[in-house]
């Protein structure tokens, strides 16, 4: 179950984003981490990224994941997200788990695919520090194509990061620099 049912003020710079801390209660959190640990992950690599990804979790029937899907996607939470970001109604979410190990990364991109409104990632690695890498970096893209790192969010355990997907939502996962595993549950709220 959700422990935190409210979203504080959405920050607007460099693009609308928010961090919801202590998102799940302890029992749900334990069950979700156990469920994700039992999944198979396959290594995916391209010019843009390097990470281990689970299969899509949207349709998997698993007690803990079913609860999580509800926590992230039930009507009252979608309403909360809609109001916080001042966006149109959100219909559904998709979801997959990703593990970033040493040397893995996701380079700057804007997430724009038709239908995606809000991106989210629930962070499930305890005690991640700046030196480990794996921060969620938000960029301010300039008209000439250059960029400025505007904000670097070091993912806190059990925090839910969300941002509005747009042509300016440039972000990356910085390279993992130590022997850790950065586990996140990531997806999008769709129109």
């Amino acid at each position: 179950m959700r422990k935190n049912n409210t979203i504080s003020a959405v920050e607007q710079s460099p693009f609308p984003h928010v961090v919801v801390e202590d998102f799940l209660d302890d029992d749900t959190l334990d069950l979700v981490i156990d469920a994700l640990a039992g999944l198979e992950y396959s290594f995916s690599e391209s010019d843009l990224f390097s990470y281990w990804a689970s299969v899509k979790l949207t349709d998997i029937d698993h007690p803990a994941l079913n609860v999580l899907r509800e926590d992230l996607g039930d009507r009252s939470w979608r309403k909360e997200v809609t109001q916080a970001f001042q966006v149109s109604k959100l219909s559904r979410i998709d979801m997959a788990a990703y593990v970033y190990g040493q040397g893995d990364f996701l380079l700057p991109h804007d997430d724009q695919v038709e239908g995606r409104i809000i991106a989210y990632s629930l962070h499930l690695t305890p005690d991640l520090e700046e030196l480990d890498g794996g921060s969620l970096d938000l960029f301010e893209g300039r008209k000439d194509g250059t960029s400025k790192l505007a904000k670097s969010i070091i993912p806190k355990f059990n925090s839910l990061n969300m941002f509005e997907v747009s042509e300016t939502s440039w972000h990356q996962v910085s390279e993992i620099l130590t022997d850790i595993q950065r586990l996140t549950l990531t997806g999008w709220y769709h129109v």
Binding site: H109, D110, G141, G145, T146, S147, W170
Partner: peptide
């Protein structure tokens, strides 16, 4: 000189 086009 720096040459950047973000995402490219």
């Amino acid at each position: 000189q720096r040459d950047e086009k973000i995402g490219f």
